[in-house]
Amino acid sequence: MNLVEALTEALAQAATVLSPDVVQALQAAREREEGPAKVQIEAILEDVNIARTHKVPICQDTGTVSYYLRVGQDFPQLGQLMQALPEATRRATSQVPLRPNTVHPFTGKNPGDNTGRYVPAVTWEFVPGGEAEIHVLPKGGGSENCCVLKMLAPGVGLKGIKEAVVEHVVACGGLPCPPTVIGVGIGGGADLALKLGKLALLRPLGQPHPEAEVAQLERELAELLNSTGVGPMGLGGKTTVLAVHVEYAHRHPASLPLGIVVQCWAHRRGVVVVHRDGRVEVKR
């Protein structure tokens, strides 16, 4: 398997097979819920089964594709990698197929292959070593429309962060297709806070942040959000979020940027690892 094939496969898997950690979280939700909420979770789990069995997209909004890369400073095939990202997007669009979702904001024209100016969006991070780790994150429009940036006054502290996250997620109601996964980015700057929120989504569910204080905030936010009663699809219930993940960066003394990234229950993602010797591996 070459790099383009591996990336195409990762995109296809992301669109059609929900990863086990997300399925597990949904199954746990089914046990908790009753009434209309349970009907929703059961429909979701049935949908996930049909998609996996028939290799069709879990959701018709197969999203816009973004890639998050951690590339070793000694990685030898950088040029190839850069070309592979849009190429795999095109191939997956026709093979799976994915819904063509890239629209020119002025002319309304859709190139039909999920590529365009600045898309697929690529975030590069360079790390020591010679491997490349490529995360694919196709994300739907409904949940992306619920992502926001708040520039808080630093004086509000953690309490202010909790309040802003809870108020925002409640205000979104059923729009982002709950139960959602919430990525919270704290600090950095306006752009970085949102980017950290997105990066937080790449971590598997059930894996808390390695720092105790951050993990504590994640637990607390999840618990608060699940007691709001918004519930699956905003029709009421105990499961508003499947998880809350937090990432942070140092901040300016005068700023407390807070990026709130909302991801629908169909939290689709995949990973491709390119080893130094050129071997490629599709992981979940």
């Binding site: 929703q40 049909i50 998609a51 069709v56 959701c59 018709q60 909004d61 063509p100 409904g142 059923g174």
Partner: peptide, 26 residues
């Protein structure tokens, strides 16, 4: 149920028409 696209598709037996496909896309 939002997102349950495959479940919805399974209940669709046939497509008997499409209008404005050229102008509006899929």
């Amino acid at each position: 149920t939002g997102g349950a696209g495959a479940l919805a598709a399974q209940a669709i037996r046939t497509v008997t028409g499409v209008h404005w496909l050229e102008e509006l896309s899929m």
